[in-house]
């Protein structure tokens, strides 16, 4: 195989300019919010059962 061809394809990375990903930020914030709601709802459910140590 020609190592030259591969070398061309595998040109190394360029440093990125500025990257803005606002959509992803909103997605992960929704994730964090759902996480918190589910998590604390479960503590609430736990608080309603018999006491045990």
């Amino acid at each position: 195989m020609s190592d030259e061809k591969a070398a061309e394809v595998i040109a190394s990375e360029h440093e990125h300019e500025d990257h803005k990903t606002p959509g992803t930020m909103v997605l992960v914030l929704i994730l964090l919010a759902s996480f918190a709601i589910y998590y604390f709802a479960n503590w609430k459910a736990l608080a309603d059962v018999w006491h045990v140590r």
């Binding site: 595998i10 040109a11 190394s12 990375e13 440093e15």
Partner: peptide, 10 residues
Amino acid sequence: MSIHFPETNW
């Protein structure tokens, strides 16, 4: 890219 080699000072 993720299957490619990163720049030297990554």
